[in-house]
Design a protein around this nucleic acid. Sequence first.
DNA 1: CTGAAAGCGCTTACAG
DNA 2: CTGAAAGCGCTTACAG
Lengths: 342, 342
Amino acid sequence: MVTIKDIAKVAGVSPSTVSRVISNHSRISKATTVKVKAIMEEMGYHPNVMAKSLVSKTTRTLAIVLPRPAEELFQDFFFGELLRGILAHSTRAGYDMLLAAATSPADESDTIARLVLGGRVDGVVLLSSRQNDPLVSMLAKHDFPTVLIGRTEGHDNIITVDTDNILASFDATTHLINQGHKKIGFIIGIPNLTVSVDRLAGYHKAMEEAGLTVNPEWIVDAEFLQQSGFRAMSFIMDIADRPTALVVIDDVTALGVMRGLKELDYNVPNDISLVSFNNIAVSELASPAISSVDIGTYQLGYTASHLLIRRIQENLNTGARNIIPHRLVVRESSIKDINKRG
Amino acid sequence: MVTIKDIAKVAGVSPSTVSRVISNHSRISKATTVKVKAIMEEMGYHPNVMAKSLVSKTTRTLAIVLPRPAEELFQDFFFGELLRGILAHSTRAGYDMLLAAATSPADESDTIARLVLGGRVDGVVLLSSRQNDPLVSMLAKHDFPTVLIGRTEGHDNIITVDTDNILASFDATTHLINQGHKKIGFIIGIPNLTVSVDRLAGYHKAMEEAGLTVNPEWIVDAEFLQQSGFRAMSFIMDIADRPTALVVIDDVTALGVMRGLKELDYNVPNDISLVSFNNIAVSELASPAISSVDIGTYQLGYTASHLLIRRIQENLNTGARNIIPHRLVVRESSIKDINKRG
DNA sequence: CTGAAAGCGCTTACAG
DNA sequence: CTGAAAGCGCTTACAG
């Protein structure tokens, strides 16, 4: 491995000078710069990242903390799209991303502590928020640069980027109401995620404002996993007073729901209509195509990375909540009497 | 930030001793060990990762290199599942994963050079293989610990983990032949990926062994992207001598194909049968459910990580190709006359 | 414009 | 069983 000293020796200058050439220091003569750069090129010099980090106390690396059940995580295009947005910006800004997974809840804090307190990363991206997440408190306590995709309360040094999930769910529900539905169910996901809480709240709000009553049986706990979506759906169709439309927590669950409905010989949208969230690529490819709230997933990731890096570099706290706009994409699953060919 | 010196001072020992306690050195008295550990705990000591790396010349970090069009990458559950397998093992082995994306082809080599030659990572995972990939040559030249998911030729210091894609495709095609099909088409993906090349070869082999001729028009270039799958399909159905079955390069493309067929009022599997690859979660949820070759994606990732870390730690070269077995999962899309309810 | 020196936080022969 | 010293490869005041 060729070091700064080797270059210095060959170039006949001091290591300090080589270092200054590398960092484009202003007070270095054109001549030395050119000579040293040529020698670096020739000898295949590559600066040792660790040594640099040790003295600069910065790593140009961000940690992406995967929500605990990494199992489910990658089942969903959603996280892929989020990662894509994060990577797009951070790569451009010259930051590397460290993927931090945890094997167990206890292990999660240890892993983060090791990375954060061990000086391995300059900032942290949290991909989802649970209510009262101890990880968030810990990061806030250390005042460590952190961006959370979702929301949290009582930590004003944690940057958050979020969808207005209450409004998004209000919009989705209202769309179904406008289609003439009065009995609308809701398939919820992992209960303690803030996203689940908020989307459920938006649904209730829309129902209430429209003067519609909600039968508690219409609200079914599912998981993001497809199988559970299926189970949830079998359950809901057996209710005597069953809904004619469903708001589903996300697209993958919606696929499971539709699959189950089909096996039970129900037609979507005619027997039961359906709207979901995230607008992942497959929602367009499903049959029928799924109406879904596009939450600008890529944009969420991109913005998160952007705000975090600004916080790190300029110590700018972008405070409070940063909301990415959403928009409902209406497709076949929520519109009866659609023109069909053939 | 509390350092080894701070601990040493408080404990009344030398920094060397503290260091030895941390690394569980054998010749340290029980008493000192206990005392020092207590103080570390009390003062909230966390070893500086960079300093440690600088002297040990090892980082306990692996780079995952994302195939250039990261755009497409995350469109596919497949890569998510692969990542999941990689992470599962590497986390367990105490390695961190660095996600390396490249904005442009030229940039890709630079990024890797920086990470590899700058001593930032101990090993590299390549997620897919193109033919004659310069990145592979570069890594091989430096004899840098590398595992490639896919295959390559002429570099015996590159560990590879792969599916026997020729056989997998042979099996898929043969399955359709056994269902009585004689005219079978093939929807290919990105052409210069080894996986595309191999799956096409397996298809040809099966057709040939069955004494069936292939109409070149039946082989359609698509992309992994769904839209292209759709386009490819519209094209193929307009051929006079059109196929009655299709082998499709992967599940996401297959979804696009099925979507298009449905819009053109063709029934799968009755008008045209279909088999694809990867067996991602949605292939089971689609209507009809898609027959797909399960290539043990998680296992591919897990094994890749395992072999790479073994190579790093024990300098064991696992040589040649490591093949993960596959198995065809038959579902509705390739079986006519399936019993349907209702 | 450039160099000598100190130091980032750790590890590890060497000596005792 | 433990300490003093040198060193990993870099940066950055300080001095000239």
